[in-house]
Design a protein around this nucleic acid. Structure first.
Length: 702
DNA sequence: ATTTTCGAGATTTTT
DNA sequence: TCTCGAAAAT
């Protein structure tokens, strides 16, 4: 039993042993919080005899859940299923499969991912002529989310006329959702809360069942997440939360780190000892994060020896920056590191491109983590669309694949079928059968025969065989093959083999297309593609919770990281979040940390590129500069920061004219040669060349 | 009249 | 790389 505590320090052991009551653990980066959670879980099971079915362990991502399961699996004797080690959304799905019948929904309701929601939104908007010119799909979905947050809409879901007095695009969106019994991510949380609050027997059952609840990354919880978790722990009151406000990087999505700070705890633990990074790296992280005003002071200490300097490389353009990174990796490889020891982190996914090119050139094998997430890939969604159509006659799946591959069934045919479906209140697929009798073509006829055939056989054939057959017979495989799109073909192969794995792993249970689709409903990542011998490329958000011996943070350009959107947001909270993002990124590194950026022209902000303000926030003696970093570039950053800060009021509109003489703080005097009002930039001829500059950065010369 | 193809434009972060 | 709108192809 004691070996359970062997690899823990005193604070960690105390936290693990504090099982009863409301416990809060504030754990800095690299202080071993996952380890504490896993050990606590094992302690509950092995030492106290609690059954895993009475423990809920909530993680933030599916990846983290899998990681946690693996760790726990190594400590808890086999046979103890840990069903409730999952994301909060994952728990809600499990909960709702059992309980949603109370609201008149079938247990096999569909979960909409973001793209599905977008498709639905587009449909609803189109019907009311609200296409992109008025509001974007994103804005429309945001308004739906707002509506769901503020209205008792679940009641309205069941009786749509009672809540929507007028028929509009919003009510239509709800109607479409209801027709497919489809829940989006928000619905999962809200429906669960609704059932717990309104059905006392369900509430009694679940509150009694969940003896112990643990939450990882609790600083990323939204208000509704807290409502739910408090509701679930109301009876036993054993709630153990772990988090780090400095690593809150999801406020844009509704995370409320202050609720973690305000948590009403019986006992508090603080883990400050860092086991991951060298002091050099920690000091860099600390010297940036301390610029945040909204923060509790926390000091990370470490016993690791000093280590190598953090290096800032300044490239002359983004290709140069990427090449430099690739060269460093080659050097590390020569000195005995593996490619998998290296990670390249960036603010936005599009930044991976130039890095990828450089790695390809040097023949360095790499994996882009979740760049395009596996289950969001077109071909995977199409393949699953065929399965969904067979399993549920799902309308959304129908729309997706009816003309893929082409069956001469375009917009006009779709409208006709939709009319039939609407008039008779039947699914689109049933409507297609009626449509087919009147004006169907050969291909549509063959499609119907195929689907009907598959529906008849769906319970007697294995899922993998069925999918394989459908993809071949429908001509989908042929389409991909004639495109000779190797990657898509491989992805489909991978999907098939993952289904085979699934069938193998669950061979004792009764499995069907239905259960399979339900089980993968929340999976957006392909976690099984974990290649040991490749450099990892990922966004900083995706890197959370991971660690690597060697980390490159690239694209550290003002306007990219921090992004110009958060800079523009006047409240400053967005900028503080960017800073926390930098903190997360830099504390991923164990031994070596590299910060890279480059000169050039930034198309999205319409100006030249300057080093990120975060670099200038680092104390001078902490970084070593490589590359030709001209001092005026750092001045440019300072100027950029200052002028945006002073831009509190809407900038005065004094349009510049072509030919006007202007002066710029860094580039000196010049002449305006072009004015672009739409992009709010102008091209100025300076003595050392032409540059695009925002008018507000120029002073007219009299 | 419909469907398909082709080229231009745009990209934060995720359950 | 993917999405969307306009011209070409059926």
């Amino acid at each position: 039993m004691n070996d359970l505590f062997e690899h823990l320090n005193q604070h960690q052991i105390e936290a693990v042993k504090a099982t009863e009551g409301r416990i809060r653990v504030t754990a800095g980066a690299g202080s071993g919080k996952t380890r504490v959670l896993a050990h606590r879980y094992a302690y509950l099971v092995n030492a106290l005899g609690i059954s895993p079915s009475n423990i809920l362990c909530v993680t933030f991502t599916n990846k983290a859940a899998n990681e946690m399961k693996k760790r726990i699996g190594g400590m808890v004797s086999a046979g103890n299923t840990n069903d409730f080690v999952c994301t909060l959304h994952g728990f809600c799905v499990k909960f709702l499969r059992k309980e949603i019948h109370r609201l008149g929904y079938p247990h096999n309701f569909i979960v909409l991912d973001e793209e599905d929601s977008k498709d639905l939104a587009k449909l609803a908007m189109k019907e009311f002529d609200l296409e992109a010119n008025q509001i974007t799909v994103k804005q429309f979905l945001a308004s739906i989310a707002r509506f769901k947050r503020t209205s008792p809409y679940i009641y309205g879901f069941m009786l749509p006329s009672s809540i929507f007095k007028t028929i509009n695009e919003t009510s239509r969106y709800f109607q479409l959702q209801l027709k497919s019994f489809a829940l989006d991510f928000d619905d999962l949380i809200y429906f669960t809360i609704y059932i717990l609050e309104n059905y006392s027997d369900a509430k009694a059952y679940w509150q009694d069942k969940l003896n112990y609840i643990m939450v990882d990354e609790a600083q990323d919880f939204s208000e509704r997440n807290w409502t739910l978790i408090e509701l679930l722990s109301e009876h036993h009151k054993n709630l153990f939360i772990v988090g780090d406000p400095d690593q809150s990087i999801y406020e844009w999505r509704g995370a409320r780190p202050e609720l973690f700070l305000n948590f009403d705890s019986d006992k508090d633990f603080i883990l400050e000892e860092n086991y991951r990074s060298t002091p050099n790296i920690l000091e860099v992280a600390n010297s940036v994060i301390k610029n945040n005003k909204k923060r509790i002071e926390k000091r990370l200490i470490t016993n690791i020896s000093k280590g190598k300097n953090v290096i800032h490389y300044h490239g002359k353009d983004d290709a140069d920056e990427s090449d430099w990174i690739a060269n460093q990796i080659v050097q590390f490889k020569k000195s005995g590191f593996a490619y998998s020891d290296c990670a390249i982190l960036y603010r936005a996914s599009y930044l991976s491109r130039s890095v990828e090119q450089a790695l390809l050139k040097k023949k360095i094998s790499y994996t882009v983590w979740g760049g395009i997430r596996f289950f969001e890939r077109k071909e995977i969604k199409d393949a699953l669309g065929y399965l969904k159509l067979i399993a549920y006659y799902d309308d959304l799946a129908f729309r997706r694949i009816i003309n893929v591959p082409s069956r001469k069934f375009g917009r006009v045919s779709m409208e006709k079928v939709q009319k039939i479906a609407e008039a008779q209140k039947i699914s689109l697929y049933d409507a297609l059968k009626i449509f087919n009798k009147e004006s169907g073509n050969e291909q549509i006829k063959a499609f119907i025969t195929l689907v009907d055939d598959m529906v008849a056989r769906k319970n007697s054939v294995s899922i993998s065989d069925l999918l394989n057959y459908v993809l071949n017979e429908s001509g989908y495989m042929n389409m991909i093959r004639t495109d000779s799109d190797e990657e898509r073909l491989e992805n489909l192969e991978e999907l098939l083999s993952s289904i085979k794995n699934y069938e193998h792993a669950n061979q004792d249970d009764e499995i069907s297309i239905d259960t399979y689709l339900q089980d993968i409903a929340l999976y957006t990542n392909a976690d099984y593609k974990n290649d040991e011998s490749t450099v990892k490329l990922m966004t900083i958000h995706q890197s959370k919770g991971l660690e690597f011996p060697i980390v490159f943070i690239c694209g550290l350009t003002e306007g990219v990281f921090p992004s110009h959107r958060s800079i523009r947001e006047r409240k400053g909270s967005a900028l503080e979040e960017e800073r926390r993002l930098f903190y997360v990124a830099s504390t991923r590194a164990e031994k070596h940390l590299f910060l890279t950026e480059s000169e050039g022209y930034n198309a999205s902000s319409g100006t030249d590129k300057y080093p990120s303000r975060f670099i200038s926030e680092i104390a001078d003696n902490l970084v070593e500069v490589e590359g030709n970093l001209r001092p005026e570039l750092l001045e440019g950053t300072k100027y950029l920061v200052k002028s945006i800060d002073s831009e509190i009021d809407p900038e005065p509109i004094t349009p510049l004219n072509v030919g006007e003489h202007v002066s710029h703080m860094v580039f000196g005097e010049g002449v305006v040669v072009e004015v672009n009002l739409e992009e709010d930039t102008c091209k100025v001829h300076f003595k050392d060349g032409d540059r695009h500059i925002r008018p507000s950065f120029l002073t007219p010369l009299v």
